[in-house]
Design a protein around this nucleic acid. Structure first.
Lengths: 152, 152
DNA sequence: CTAAATAGGACTAAAGTAGTTCCAATTGAA
DNA sequence: TTCAATTGGAACTACTTTAGTCCTATTTAG
């Protein structure tokens, strides 16, 4: 019902992989192989994560990526934020514009509460948690994914 | 960060409007006017909601829509589900296919937990709650939205 | 019978996303 | 000093989804 982009999904996968050996430097190549996702895609993901300071990068031969912080200090919320970027609230967020949808406007405040619940739930899940093997049997929740992951 | 479609957004707006006078029959026309959204769009939304049994419809002159249940028995989760539809988990959900992304697969189980938290949060918010005027000042959280609403 | 409504489907246009590719900049090591 | 291994960054293409509109059939009150 709520969704996250595929890239954000890859983001969590990649980060979880890095979290398995947080001290080592992992090249995009190596990561791609281990995670079974195409190299260009993994590269793109890592570049974004580096740009958002969730991983540190080093260039040149023997370069690669490392987690910027301890796995227990990186939340899923942060990763999704990094990958999807903040979505700009336009128009109505600037005060001088009169909202055209008054009826719906009165509802927005409630959405905020919901957001906070959702967000705090996601902030509560760290890479550390993710690295622990899942309780559920493998394969069960992987999606053949068309485009997005569903929060069913 | 997580997103819902604009239609789902309209869905909650429309449903909240209907919830203000749950006993009355509201035509698409009337609703569109009150909610300040184009008629064809509101029609589409109401048709979907009717099809999903969240509202009851009556045709012909003096026809229109009514909430199918009491506002306190309709959750935001149900509305979003109705508007976005279940997103089919393909491939991996059928047992005989071997998952190609084992590394990420081991993570899926955790996603399930997250889903449940998110979902239960949304199930906890009813139309009844939405109808109560928001605490926050108007205009502040409405988005000029490009395409989707952000769960920031 | 007619006007007011919904039902349902088809359709168009726009937007967003995924994924690839290319080239520049770095850097370790022979 | 030169080469090879890497990341940085941006541009681009193809694809999918979504939004929104419109047309026609059906239903029903008066």
């Amino acid at each position: 019902m709520l969704r996250m982009s595929k890239l954000a999904d890859y983001g969590t996968v990649v980060m979880t992989y890095l979290a398995q050996r947080p001290e080592a430097v992992h090249s995009a190549m190596e990561t791609a192989t281990q995670v079974h996702v195409a190299l260009p895609t993994v590269s793109k993901v890592l570049k974004i994560l580096a740009h958002e300071n969730l991983v540190l990068s080093s260039r040149g031969a023997k370069g690669g990526y490392v987690l910027a912080r301890s796995p227990k200090d990186i939340s899923i919320a942060q990763i999704i934020d990094a990958m999807e970027g903040p979505i700009a609230l336009t128009q109505c967020s600037s005060d001088d514009i009169v909202c055209e949808q008054e009826a719906s406007c009165s509802i927005r405040g409630n959405w905020r509460k919901i957001n906070e619940v959702v967000r705090s739930a996601l902030q509560g899940v760290t890479l550390d948690n993710m690295a622990q093997p899942a309780v559920q049997p493998i394969h069960m929740y992987a999606n053949g994914l068309k485009q997005r992951r569903a929060f069913s």
